[in-house]
Amino acid sequence: MTQVAQPSRSGVTDLYFDFLCPYAWRGLELADVLRREHGMRFRLRHFSLVQGNHAENPDRKHPTWWLDRQVAGQGSDYQAGSLNAFLAGQAALQQDEDAAWAFTLALFRAKHQPAEGVPAIDLRNDGQIRLLAEATLDADAFGRALEDQEGLRAALHEDLQDSATLGVFGTPTFHLPDGNIAYFRFANLVTEPGAALDLWTLYTRVLTDGARIETVKRAK
Rank of each mutant, 00 (worst) to 15 (best):
Y183L: 14
C21T: 08
R205I: 00
R43Y: 01
S76N: 00
A139M: 05
D98R: 12
T171A: 12
E29M: 05
A155L: 06
T215G: 05
S10R: 11
S163H: 02
S8V: 07
D178W: 11
N125W: 11
A219L: 14
Y78K: 09
I213P: 03
F47W: 14
Q51K: 11
L152Q: 04
V168Y: 03
M1G: 08
A106P: 11
F169W: 03
D198K: 15
G39I: 10
A100I: 12
V71S: 06
T136V: 09
H112M: 09
Y183M: 14
H62Q: 15
D126T: 14
N57A: 13
D77N: 03
R60V: 14
A91F: 03
V168E: 01
P63F: 09
G170Q: 02
R41S: 12
T64G: 04
A85Y: 00
T215V: 15
H38S: 06
Y78Q: 04
Y183R: 12
R185P: 10
K111Q: 13
Q149A: 06
D209K: 00
L207S: 00
A139G: 06
T2L: 12
A133W: 04
D122L: 05
T104P: 06
L156I: 06
D138I: 13
F17L: 13
N180L: 13
N188P: 00
Q6M: 08
D96Y: 12
A85T: 07
Q128C: 07
N84S: 13
L152V: 09
A102H: 13
R212E: 12
A155R: 15
Q128M: 12
G117D: 04
L83T: 04
A106I: 14
R153H: 07
A196R: 09
L87R: 03
D68N: 10
G11C: 12
N180A: 13
L207R: 06
Y23S: 08
Q161M: 05
A92L: 03
G81K: 02
H54Q: 10
R153W: 03
A72G: 01
A55H: 14
H38T: 10
F47L: 08
A154G: 10
V206L: 08
G210E: 10
V4F: 07
G81I: 03
A72E: 05
A106V: 14
L34T: 03
D159A: 05
F142D: 01
Q74F: 02
Q149G: 12
T171Y: 01
D162Y: 02
A139V: 15
T173C: 06
S163M: 00
R43G: 11
G81D: 01
A155P: 04
Y16L: 06
S82V: 13
L87W: 00
H157E: 04
E56S: 15
H157C: 03
T173L: 01
N53M: 13
D209C: 01
K61S: 13
G151S: 06
F169I: 02
D68M: 04
E192M: 10
Q79L: 05
T201P: 00
G73P: 02
G194D: 12
F108M: 13
A88W: 02
F169T: 11
G11F: 11
D14V: 09
L34V: 10
G170K: 03
Q6D: 10
D140R: 14
L146N: 06
H157Y: 12
E147G: 08
A155M: 08
